[in-house]
Amino acid sequence: MEIAVTVNGQTYERDVEPRKLLIHFLRDDLDLTGSHIGCDTGNCGACSVIVDGVLLKSCMLLAVQANGTRIETVEGLSEDGELTRLQQAFNEHHALQCGYCTPGMLMSTTALLRENPSPSEDEIKKALQGNICRCTGYWNIVEAVKSVAK
């Protein structure tokens, strides 16, 4: 099927099989390899992206379902190569180690902060519930998000 999606402001038109998951489309067809795959059951959230303003896991969406949408991925977060405040906070608070879950964490917390610029610690943890990290134990991720909360 022919689909057109806008990812990080750029529109792509591609022919895809209906069975292709959005995450494979982003990674393999568009070469946007920042979003990752850490499970096969929709649990880990490493593939989280924002579709038409809504945070989703791109492994539970078919690429064809994204037809006509505007997608934001980790590659689109920073402008002119500079880290955003949130990205800087992850660096300052050592909120990443291997970095594999990090793109998903950033998308989830970006979505959180848009909706709730001053989340409590509990709200931050609740917002991270769909993202698994095996390196950090989450503590420093929560600290990083807290530090940019208003």
Partner: peptide, 23 residues
């Protein structure tokens, strides 16, 4: 000193290269 990690910038921007990224 807790020098900030040099690795982070690429990883925070989705520019790390993990094995499945190699084509």
């Amino acid at each position: 000193q807790s020098v900030k990690r040099k690795e982070d910038k690429r990883l925070l921007q989705g520019e790390g290269v993990f094995v499945d990224d190699v084509k």
